[in-house]
């Protein structure tokens, strides 16, 4: 069924560009900006869900990998692109190609960081794993803060704006597709088995450490992609990647429902939109936001969707055949 996939891809790209064209000509810049940041958050939430929700390993250092991707891709764009592509890489197809490579650079460097961090950390569990990932996230941020070539404490100026709604929507769609297909594959089952009972999975011959590190690396890759999209959109400074950012992504995942991909999309969208919707309350908005968060956790501890997925009505028949996990 290769042709169907190729056709699907072409149609998806066409839709994404159509949405971009429509959005940029109809929507006001403020809403457009919120939509872009929202899609970046969707990528972050989906990739963290792979680690936290699907594999059941609690990581709260996602902003660190986002930072690695953001800075690696920005450094590539600022230092390497003018040399390799020439000064003409400022616009058009050449710029788009250079940006695509920049995104990949961001993702791959971040994946490498994920491997280096994941290999030692994945021996730990629960709260210890959480606090170690938090620690690595902060260490990454402080290291970047001390690299002068990428601006250090001044922030990295001069990164051209390349990201638009089409890029981020495409990125979000690709992240969703990859993680969804992974989840339904042989390897995805192994990840779910680790979440449900790590000891049982190990006893049944699942190489748990290898799978946990793999999930972590894939999660880091997409966090890096999100970072690359972020750094080519807005002013780049390490303050965007503090552990509060990691916490924000964790909240998105938990609020949407751990292990539910559509839940992550929902959670990321809601939590990006909510502070904007509360703008009428200006100085009280973050107080309301935090109270809503507490209230939601008390009223619905499993998140909005729990482990279920939202499906489109005409796709329901297919998804029902999916084997469900015993709770």
């Amino acid at each position: 069924m290769l042709w169907r996939r190729v056709a699907g891809g072409v149609i998806a790209i066409a839709i994404v560009w159509a949405v971009e064209w429509a959005a940029s000509s109809v929507l006001n810049p403020y809403i457009y900006r919120v939509l872009v940041l929202c899609s970046i958050n969707v990528i972050l939430a989906l990739s963290l869900n792979l680690v936290n929700g699907i594999t059941g390993q609690f990581s709260i250092g996602h902003a660190g990998f986002m930072a690695v991707g953001a800075y690696a891709s920005a450094a590539y764009t600022v230092y390497a692109v003018p040399v390799w592509f020439g000064a003409s890489a400022g616009a058009g197809w050449l710029a788009a190609g250079a940006f695509l490579i920049a995104i990949l650079v961001g993702g791959l460097v971040s994946a490498l960081a994920g491997f280096l961090v994941g290999l030692p950390s994945m021996r730990l569990r629960g709260d210890y794993l959480a606090i170690v990932t938090l620690g690595f996230g902060e260490i990454i941020r402080v290291i970047i803060l001390n690299i002068d070539a990428v601006g250090g404490a001044r922030g990295f100026a001069g990164v051209p704006t390349r990201t638009n709604l089409a890029w981020v929507l495409g990125g979000a769609w690709l992240t969703f597709a990859v993680i969804r297909n992974l989840m339904k594959s042989y390897h995805g089952r192994a990840l779910l088995a680790i979440r449900e009972d790590e000891i049982a999975a190990e006893a049944l011959g699942v190489p748990t450490t290898r799978y946990k590190v793999t999930a972590f690396v894939i999660g880091a890759f997409f966090a890096g992609v999100a970072g690359a999209l972020f750094s080519h959109y807005t002013y780049l400074h390490t303050n965007s990647f503090t552990f509060m950012k990691s916490i924000e992504v964790v909240i998105m995942v938990v609020l949407g429902g751990m292990g539910s991909l559509t839940g992550s999309i929902l959670g990321a969208t809601l939590l990006t939109a909510l502070p904007e919707l509360l703008r009428f309350a200006s100085s009280e908005r973050l107080i309301i936001y935090s109270l809503l968060l507490i209230a939601l956790m008390i009223a619905r501890p499993q998140g909005i969707l729990g482990q279920r997925e939202l499906t489109l009505p005409f796709r329901r028949r297919r998804s029902e055949s999916r084997p469900t996990l015993a709770a």
Partner: peptide, 21 residues
């Protein structure tokens, strides 16, 4: 325990923003 953790984060955000206000 995760729910409790997120609740704790919520309380933390509340105290910070309440403090700012």
């Amino acid at each position: 325990r995760l729910t409790a953790l997120i609740t704790a984060i919520g309380v933390s955000l509340f105290l910070e923003n309440f403090g700012i206000r």
